[in-house]
Write a protein that binds this DNA or RNA. Structure first.
Lengths: 330, 330
DNA sequence: CTGTTAGCGCCTTCAG
DNA sequence: CTGAAGGCGCTAACAG
């Protein structure tokens, strides 16, 4: 900028004004400045220097969980991201996806990223990234938990929703089962009965499991007898394998409460015709296959998280879900 | 940092070293510094100041086209983004999604974003964002074009692929038709015969259309008679409506060359049983519905774009496609 | 309308 | 092992 000023025969301030408050500069000076800039290949004020000066980056950080890969493979996470992006675009904020998945370095990344605030996609209770984000004194909004002092949580009441879904799918069932997301960051696949929700590290999974247990208990079902298939990923092949394993252990299964539409559909495919099933998210495939499911708008929640992270009041979403009853539970 | 230094009773340099080259500082000093930092709530060097000093941000910018909304609604764009994200995560780069869609301001955004290089998702020939990105003297890699001096293009040879796909689907057809993506940024929906590829503003769409025309000409079909349905979005409902319109205009249609699997599937649903169809991308739905399709890995191309943008040699992808023959063309 | 001064927070260089 | 000086590029505040 100094160079441009010299070449244009004006002071650096005139150059600065030319870019930031053009109307404050005479047409003549402005032309001189822009000419000089073009000649020197100067494209405008340096963003880093500007951020330093302003004390703000006008960029929102998003932390998407332990592996970017999972995030982009999960259509729900993508919808969430779209909601965040929408708000950023509206308000002229950049959206920085913070790389995670490298373990130890995640913390450093979160600390060192040039962002004004963070939106964190739901993670485990013990994720160090959360504490790191908050410790940098940036505003932190977490989707669906874990809840922590110094951070805001936005999301639906997963336990209440799961209880309603469980009541629907387990009604009249004699051999209910559950298809669950991973219980901790090791993301292991296994089948076991009566998993204690309290032992689950992901708050979303924990709450949904607790809700399904609530529903079972309400119906007089012995939770310790309910087989639970834990799927490493939200993937069709994976889920079908787990469902087969579940049927091995308990061939009489007649109702499956799943934590995602894809899991639910996989269950249905492995035991067509004899199963009551609920899914989660009311995605396209749920509508295509007449699946009872818990509807929620991840996109809206993403927008709400971004709005809150940017310092504005955002709507509460605890009750922004509803059970969509379809053929799969009738 | 100055405050921390004072509180710790050391010089600012010692604080800086504590964070950047810890081994160069005595354990004692380090402890003093970290204590003071904790007390003062200092989380580490300021990212903007650091970028300013280093002259680099270690962040890669991605420009996703005229509306973020389209980008996230398009599963192929998401896959591409996943590939970019993967490389960023590997190399410790942040990934900044540059908000676009606001028209005039897009240019400013691209100029002012704190990134070292750009990856641009394919856009129109006249997109001012491209020129803006290049003018900032940052490295610019464009996916699939448009090609411009000063930028690198990575992508498959859409024309050759479309020619192969067209040869397959139009073989023996008497009334071929095309389902196309938008021809310009107005994204209008319409049906017209014999659209001249040269008039299309999106290079990808242009090349695919040209390839389909090549195939038609090869088979002795009069291109000016081939009805083309242009779909505003890559969406099932939209595509079915356009397909119906196409059937109104030309009830005898017996072969449809589509530019996306979703479009192809919509065509099939509107005229089941009597249609030869090809799609594009070999997505999950193509496999589910036995759709002949052009397979390519957007994810790998995303990774290649990111690698190139970061200054490393990236594989050429011109021939990274293949025609997957399935039931829909037999 | 334009220029001067000062300093945002950091780190490279060079001396202790 | 630690510190002092200087400057990265920019703009707020205040003259002129």
């Amino acid at each position: 900028m100094t160079d441009v000023a010299r070449a244009a025969g004006v002071s650096p301030m005139t150059v600065s004004y030319t870019y930031n408050q053009p109307q404050r500069v005479s047409a003549e000076s402005r032309a001189k400045v822009l000419d000089a800039a073009r000649d020197l290949g100067y494209a405008g004020p340096d963003p880093s220097a500007r951020s330093l000066r302003y004390g703000a980056t006008r960029t929102l950080g998003v932390v998407l969980g332990e592996h970017l890969t999972y995030a982009f493979d999960d259509p729900q996470a993508v919808l969430f991201l779209a909601g965040v992006a929408e708000v950023c675009a509206d308000r002229g904020y950049g959206l920085l996806i913070v790389p995670t998945g490298t373990g130890e370095e995640d913390r450093d990344w979160v600390v060192a990223a040039a962002v004004d605030a963070y939106v964190v996609w739901t993670t485990t209770d013990d994720d160090p990234v959360l504490a790191a984000a908050r410790d940098t004194r940036r505003r932190v909004v977490v989707h669906s938990g874990p809840a922590r002092p110094g951070t805001t949580v936005i999301g639906i009441d997963n336990r209440a929703a799961a209880r309603a879904a469980g009541a629907e799918v387990f009604a009249g069932a004699r051999h209910p089962a559950v298809l669950s997301f991973p219980v901790d960051r090791r993301r292991e696949t296994f089948v076991r009965s009566g998993i204690d929700p309290a032992s689950v590290a992901y708050p979303v999974t924990r709450d949904r499991l607790a809700g399904y247990r609530d529903a079972a208990v309400d119906l007089g079902i012995d939770w310790s007898e309910v087989p639970i298939g834990v799927c490493r990923t939200n993937d069709d092949g994976e889920a079908r394998a787990v469902m087969r394993e579940l049927l091995d252990v308990a061939p009489g299964i007649d109702a499956v409460a799943a934590m995602g539409d894809r899991l639910a559909l996989a269950a249905l495919r492995e035991a067509p015709g004899r199963l009551r099933v609920v899914g989660w998210d009311d995605s396209e495939i749920a509508r295509d296959h007449d699946l009872t499911t818990v509807a929620q708008s991840l996109r809206e929640q993403g927008a709400a998280c971004a709005t809150a992270a940017l310092g504005d009041p955002a709507p509460d979403h605890r009750d922004s879900w509803r059970l969509v009853r379809r053929a799969s539970t009738s």
